[in-house]
Design a protein around this nucleic acid. Structure first.
Lengths: 173, 173
DNA sequence: TGCAACCGATTGCAAAATGCAATCAGTTTT
DNA sequence: AAAACTGATTGCATTTTGCAATCGGTTGCA
């Protein structure tokens, strides 16, 4: 995880930021899962990241300017991690990545519904989502509070799929 | 580089395909550099990939369905690697990735001009490029042959920047 | 016919990254 | 006072990476 400045190519440099197995997973959980604390990221990740790897990647993402860390006023040893503008502008890339994966890879229904909605919503939905993230993480004012947040919308859709699958599995209930 | 099926999340699965330092570099060189042979990829990569890593990644990308390999009729031991549709549809992602890198990372002028043009060209340019790649790699007919190829356009722009930089460095010439 | 250059790899080896479990000191809750 | 939780750190075995040398076969040229 050293890998510094192999070339000035934009794609290569981007790869040097999140060309590993975990960095983008952490950012995904912060962006779509709303996680802000170490333990939330550690226990919340579906893929089961190890605590030493998580600590290393958080440190690295901070050094790269993708995250900042602040004390949680409510708990003397709790740290709150925030996304920077640099990380927030990854939303369109994550949307495209999700859309591509949905087409070509063996995604599960309940986990791909978010990607599907995000793809259908297109740039307007991404803009709204980024605006909400700027509010949450950077303290910027919310331009227009129109309806439920994008994250809540995605989460509701996810839970609806989970519920319908549970129903299909035990129709008697 | 084993990493199988940590979760059915589209972003995670995408990461399992090219969440490493080299896979996307190889695809970049095939897509934008037009490289089709082992040696071209080995010597052409600016980042200096090692031959064992290249062999491993080519094999892996084939297993994943991103590449195919065929004999070169002109040379009994030459292999021609081709992109599959799955790989060709990465073009919009690479375009977004390049655009993001250009904004946030210390890219070099000559290497970011391609990303800039690709960003400005938008979806129409990406569609044209993908059409050309389907022609090159999958033998599909070219819909409309309108002007120079996207790759040639990008390459010309790159060379123009290199030339102007050389001129600026030695104005007397 | 000889021979150098080139073809897609493979091998051996050291260094680095990863994954896992146990543990840490301090804080909060019970 | 005890238990649970906070963000980590440590030690250690395994895996992956990066590098250099090399492989057997093919081709082009003298």
């Amino acid at each position: 995880m050293s890998m510094d400045r192999r070339s000035g190519c934009p794609i290569n440099l981007s790869l040097e930021v999140f060309g590993d197995r975990w960095s983008l997973i952490i950012l995904r959980d912060m962006i779509f899962g709303g996680r802000r604390h170490f333990r939330e990221l550690l226990n919340g990740s579906m893929e089961g990241i190890a605590s030493n790897i998580l600590a290393d990647r958080l440190k690295r993402l901070m050094e790269l300017g993708m995250l900042t860390k602040a004390d949680d006023p409510s708990h003397k040893q709790k740290a709150i991690y925030s996304l920077t503008e640099m990380a927030i502008t990854l939303v369109p890339i994550l949307a495209h990545l999700g859309a591509w994966g949905r087409v070509w890879l063996p995604v599960s229904d309940e986990l791909s519904i978010r990607a599907e909605l995000l793809e259908k919503g297109g740039q307007p939905m991404w803009d709204k989502f980024m605006d909400e993230l700027r509010h949450e993480h950077l303290g910027m004012p919310l331009d227009t509070m129109s309806g439920p947040s994008v994250r809540a919308t995605l989460q509701a859709a996810y839970e609806a799929v989970v519920a319908s699958k549970a129903l299909a599995a035990s129709p008697a209930a």
